[in-house]
């Protein structure tokens, strides 16, 4: 083959049109105004943070208080940590375990209802529009209420403890996991679904024999992800009285034992990292990532 002659150069169509640039500038200006207003409303200012550094210092490293009678006492800060075994660390480990049990039960108890909601809220498995809409609406309402609010309601009903935490997590998780599951069913390959419909399969049979086998790994992956998230949430639920390590963090803060509190916080960090690694490892094992 001979060397080709270069074709004549052609004008390149512009990347941006003038109207596009105007819209871009307007959106940027709008965002700046909204953020400035939000900062004013929330008293967000770097100045206050800098001026408050002494309070932060005292919280972290303690404070020497001198009373009018000349006596000086040292109030402990967060550091050094409280590392007493039988008073702090051993009970802390037990509280951490309790937190895991709350997250585990909250996740597991929500599975049947979440599966039901997922199936009626996915277009793949339910093409009866009124029921589909109802499923999505109920999940939206349940999801709009934060876990903490559920926990407060159930604490009011049954008293402080781990159990209201479990119920709060389970109810919230039905809605969140139901939505995640239904979305993953929506994305399933429609081919096998159509093939079974041709064979005369009912919607329930189609769900059981085409949709569920195809989405099972992603459902499992989402379940493990929710377990991970629910253990984190159960720490927060503890601070409003629903058991676990969070409850004891709150108690220690209230009684100015910042060193014990910080020990528990460090244990939470380790707990969350361990659960996160475990859940990621298991998700890889089931092939869901």
């Amino acid at each position: 083959m001979s060397i080709a002659t270069r074709p004549p150069e052609q004008a390149v169509p512009p990347r941006f049109r003038p109207s596009g640039i105007a819209v871009g500038v307007a959106i940027t200006l709008g965002l700046i105004i909204v953020h400035w207003y939000a900062a004013v409303q929330t008293n967000t200012s770097p100045k206050e943070l800098i001026e408050g550094w002494r309070g932060l210092w005292n919280f972290l490293f303690g404070l020497d208080k001198t009373f009018p009678n000349g006596k000086t006492i040292h109030q402990d800060g967060a550091f050094p940590l409280d590392l007493r075994w039988s008073e702090t660390i051993r009970p802390g480990l037990e509280y951490c375990l309790l937190t895991i049990w709350i997250g585990l039960l909250g996740t597991t108890l929500s599975i049947p209802a979440a599966l039901l909601f997922a199936i009626i809220s996915s277009r793949t498995t339910n093409r009866f529009v009124p029921l589909w809409l109802a499923g999505r609406a109920v999940m939206s309402v349940l999801r709009a209420i934060p876990e903490t609010v559920y926990a407060l309601m159930f604490i009011a009903a049954v008293g402080f403890g781990a159990f209201p935490g479990v119920i709060a997590l389970a109810i919230h998780n039905v809605a969140v996991m139901g939505k995640l599951w239904s979305e993953s069913m929506d994305e399933v390959d429609q081919g096998p679904v159509e093939a079974l419909r041709v064979a005369g399969a009912s919607p329930v049979q189609t769900a059981a024999h085409a949709v569920l086998p195809a989405v099972m790994p992603s459902l499992l992956g989402l379940l493990l992800y929710r377990f991970d998230t629910n253990v984190r949430s159960s720490v927060i639920l503890g601070t409003v009285g629903a058991g676990g390590i969070g409850f004891f963090i709150k108690t220690e803060v209230d009684s100015f034992h910042f060193d014990t509190m910080m020990t528990y916080v460090c244990m939470v960090i380790v707990l969350i990292i361990v659960i996160d690694l475990f859940s990621a490892w298991l998700r890889r094992k089931v092939g869901a990532v």
Partner: peptide, 28 residues
Amino acid sequence: VAMVFQKIHLVPRRSVLDNVCAGALGRL
């Protein structure tokens, strides 16, 4: 009336036998 497709549309994770059985779902 049965149909086969260009993209075949079996459930890849299920066994061959279970896929064939699924053809009978309409009468089960």
